[in-house]
Design a protein around this nucleic acid. Structure first.
Length: 430
RNA sequence: UCCUCGAUAGCUCAGCGGUAGAGCAUCCGGCUGUUAACCGGAGGGUCGUAGGUUCGAAUCCUACUCGGGGAGCCA
């Protein structure tokens, strides 16, 4: 008999079917046994009644251990007493591989232990739910951007130098030359936008920072859209539309997973309303009002960002920062050159910055000036200057942090659970 | 790099100067509707490592190792 997936069971009530999967849990009550079976698509309970099966089958089921892989044949029937509403009355069972001493028991475990067993931990219902939602979020991001006329472009991962010149990069050799793992594909995406109009990258990014907080990974994924003939305002509309589409997609397609995670969906539903917006100036005033000591021209610290985000029940754009604390390529506000046309999007509930974006400098002379101010090599960036020499246009773009977005939507304590095998400070195993 | 907390049974922890404990997991027995099942029994430990104080150290002190949370940096 061709095995079915558990997610297909609802179409096979009162039929004899075969499932293939793993024993998630096993309970015995003397003359009746319950086997929780999982196959990656869902969970279902198998029931074995002693007086209805052979002694041999009953004994075989008695010997089942957690995570033993099995083929199970039985009758599908609805039963309110079963956790999923449907259960399988077991008629036959074949052990594919017997598991002995599975390390992750159905009790509490510490983070260190779980991370050491990440390759097994991902089998747990909560972890499965997060990875499932991650895949759906990725899908929704691509669907939205593709629908808005974007083309996916893949920038290089090995780069000759830093894109923004600030953070520490992972160093490696490129034959005789020095090379670094990318920390952002943005500069390349600007070139791609001039070729294809609207583009986005979707890939891994590396930061060799010794960050050790719930919001940081050493290796994480970023989506970097870049748009030609686009202003700061246009970019904010795309950012808002993108996140709303993502949240809407998750709410409609992942309700089971959100339930497993215990996520308060009313907080997510609020995201479908227009986002809050505040300028850097207003944010400084707000922080001083809340008792933070900060003066105009200083960058926000982590506690500052949290305080701003907590003030709103939706994501909030903080825009127009002082030019002096932002990246060299950001375009000054023509009405107020001391600030730049940029915005960071802070997620609600303390999940921090999930988007950073700006309109880029399109004037060659101004960009050259910025190179000098930041002591950047004109020869290294000659190709980037070319974009302002040959048909320069107003353009803007942003970077969306995938893992922070997932952590926020799933309501997780830490970004490390949003990726299958997180690369963390002092942790590269497994 | 800095601040802070921690390391005791396979796992989660209690014990905080006087012979090493519990729950879960494992094994054995019982139970016909379990939902992290329940009930009874058994096995299981150089208390992270190295020094020091003390009649006596898991417990106090020092250093180191490993890890958690945070700062800075950022998505």
């Amino acid at each position: 008999m061709q095995p079915l997936w558990i997610r297909e069971l609802h179409e096979h009530h009162d039929e004899i079917v075969t499932l293939h999967g793993w024993v998630h849990q096993h309970r015995s009550s003397g003359k009746i046994q319950f086997v929780q079976l999982r196959d990656g698509t869902g969970f279902v309970q198998g029931v074995v009644v002693k007086e209805e099966v052979t002694e041999e089958l009953y004994a075989k089921v008695s010997s089942l251990t957690q995570e033993t892989s099995v083929l199970v044949t039985g009758l599908v029937r609805a039963d309110d007493r079963a956790p999923s509403g449907v259960e399988l009355l077991v008629k036959d069972l074949e052990i594919v591989h017997k598991t002995v001493d599975y390390p992750i028991t159905p009790k509490e475990h510490g983070v260190d232990f779980l991370m050491d067993h990440r390759h097994l931990w991902i089998r747990a219902p909560r972890q499965r739910a997060v990875l499932k939602i991650r895949a759906e979020i990725s899908k929704a991001i691509r669907a939205y951007l593709d629908g808005e006329g974007f083309t996916q472009v893949d920038p290089p991962i090995l780069t000759p130098s830093s894109c923004e010149g600030t953070t520490n990069l992972f160093h490696t050799k490129y034959f005789e030359e020095d090379a670094y793992l990318t920390q952002s594909g943005q500069l390349y995406m600007e070139a791609a936008a001039m070729a294809l109009g609207r583009v986005y990258s979707f890939g891994p990014t590396f930061r060799a920072e010794k960050s050790k907080t719930r919001r940081h990974l050493i290796e994480f994924w970023m989506i970097e859209p870049e748009m030609a003939y686009c202003t700061h305002e246009d970019s904010l509309k795309i950012q808002e539309g993108l996140l709303q589409a993502v949240v809407r997609h998750v709410l409609t397609n992942c309700s089971l997973e959100l339930k497993v995670l215990g996520r308060d969906v009313t907080k997510l539903e609020r995201v479908l309303e227009p986002f809050a917006r505040i300028t850097y100036d207003e944010a400084i005033a707000l922080l001083r009002q809340k008792g933070h000591t900060i003066t105009w021209g200083e960058d926000f610290g982590s506690p500052d960002e949290t305080a701003i985000a907590e003030h709103f029940d939706r994501p909030v754009f903080v825009e127009r920062y002082p030019a002096s604390i932002k990246a060299f390529y950001m375009k000054p506000d023509p009405a107020r050159p001391e600030v730049v046309l940029c915005a960071d999007l802070l997620a609600p509930e303390g999940y921090g910055e999930i988007i950073g974006g700006s309109q880029r400098i399109d004037d060659a002379d101004l960009l050259l000036e910025r190179f000098k101010e930041h002591e950047l090599s004109e020869t290294d960036y000659a190709w980037y200057m070319d974009l302002r020499r040959y048909g320069s246009v107003p353009h803007a773009g942003f970077g969306l942090g995938l893992e922070r977005t997932i952590a926020w939507i799933c309501g997780l304590e830490h970004v490390r659970e949003t990726i299958t095998f997180p690369r963390l400070l002092y942790r590269m195993y497994p």
